[in-house]
Design a protein around this nucleic acid. Structure first.
Lengths: 248, 248
DNA sequence: CGTCGGCTTGATTGTGCTCAACCCGGGTGG
DNA sequence: CCACCCGGGTTGAGCACAATCAAGCCGACG
């Protein structure tokens, strides 16, 4: 089945915005050529399910633009997000037949997809891909474990503050090294998605966001655009070590 | 610094109880010989901290016997377990300088340790080790994500039932393919460790265990030895799909 | 025998959930 | 054009579940 590239400017790996961060970041020209050959782009609209849990997986790939969510649902409808996939993050599980979780587009998402079988072959033959994938997987595992602390032990307010801090950090890593000072960004998640991420109800999310706003720890422009007057003050609400192990 | 093997019968990889499940499971005689050369055994008593978060890591390795816990602690003392390491599980993070989490022995633990630098070299050179480590890491990631659902969305009772089901499953995987029927096993965790794992207080753990006992879903011999008269009944309390996607 | 650690049980409190009403902005159809 | 609706979000009242504070139990060990 053919999949035509959605955006012509993305066809060449050399121009790819995630070239230096994704699984392919350590590839040289020969490996890139092989990847070029098995890849195809596809764009999903917000809300669309990219992969259903339990499905045969046809492909693996990288998020090029947008935000996707890994989620798990219980029979009675309770839902928990178990991963947030941002540009350059890897989608899919080499070596597994069936997808363990749903993958849902939180915003419009463009994937760079590789057919599974040839990618697994490449993985077996090229250490530069395998080592990068191992590194990314270990990073994801660390992130998942941080998230377990949040889910198991943090209060609703700490959860919200942590989420905002993480998203702010991801965005502003492009601009300044955060520290303290004014930061502004767009929330890529609805209140409901935030609730699913944090193990809360959407009412509680809404209340806590309002509370942070009331206390001038955050400012809102509309529902989604957020300004943080002083990042250090927000960090203070996360429950985490404010001074990442610094000396006094 | 020398580390003499604690138990002479563990010195030879051929006799190792985790030979076929650990990172080394796909190694042939030549790689095993290299590993033999960089390994040393060490036994830790219950409660001892094996690695401190933030420390330089001197080694990586495998759990040979016993149970260890990965934990994270907030400044005010709230604690969350973020991983449970059973025999054959891997300890440490190749490619990272500093340990991200505490590793604590829950029972007496024996590790098969590899010096970090030579192991990383081996990892870079031998796909059979690298691919096995990638596979194990992906499995751990899946397990962590299952745990996130538990932490974020399950009730106290469901959490306890899930933990018991998991431990029972791990133990009895040796004996029968679970399904339903009578299962018996030893809890390797104190009530406090269970609470840290489940994101609960130890009082709540105690109460819920008592409740399951009162309802004859479990039986206790002492505090730690547990019998499950009907595994299917316990599964019913976990909140998970009872019929793992089976047809009626 | 007394103490100590791990565990259980009880009484009370509080955080976040539930149920419910309402707001707001955008799109649609009469 | 305006009325209507619809989805996402906010706010409120009451409640329930697990946390907290506190006492007591049990078995091991000195």
């Amino acid at each position: 089945m053919y999949q035509s590239p959605m955006k012509s400017e993305l066809v060449d790996c050399g121009d790819c915005p995630i070239r230096h961060k994704a699984v392919c970041s350590r590839c040289g020209p020969p490996e890139l050529a092989i990847l070029e050959n098995m890849k195809s782009y596809k764009t999903y609209e917000a809300g669309q399910t990219i992969v259903w849990a339990g499905d045969q997986t046809q492909f693996v790939g990288s998020v090029v633009t947008g935000v996707a969510a890994l989620t798990q649902t219980m029979e009675d409808g309770r839902r928990q997000m178990v991963g947030l996939l941002l540009p350059s993050d890897f989608v899919g599980r080499p070596g597994r037949e069936l997808a363990p979780f749903d993958v849902v587009a939180a915003t419009e998402v463009t994937l760079c997809r590789f057919r599974k079988a040839p990618f697994e072959k490449l993985l077996a033959e090229t250490p530069s891909v395998a080592s990068r994938l191992l590194e990314m997987t270990l990073d994801e595992l660390d992130a998942a474990r941080e998230w377990m602390l949040l889910l198991g032990r943090k209060t609703a307010r700490e959860k919200i503050a942590s989420l905002l801090a993480i998203i702010a950090g991801r965005d502003s890593s492009l601009r300044l090294a955060s520290a303290s000072g004014r930061v502004q960004f767009e929330l890529p998640l609805s209140r409901e998605a935030m609730a699913d991420y944090l193990g809360l109800t959407l009412e509680t999310v809404s209340r806590q966001v309002s509370a942070l706003k009331r206390e001038n720890i955050i400012e809102l422009q509309g529902k989604r655009r957020i300004t943080i007057p002083d990042f250090a003050v927000l960090m203070n609400e996360t429950g985490d070590d404010t001074d990442g192990g610094m000396l006094t």
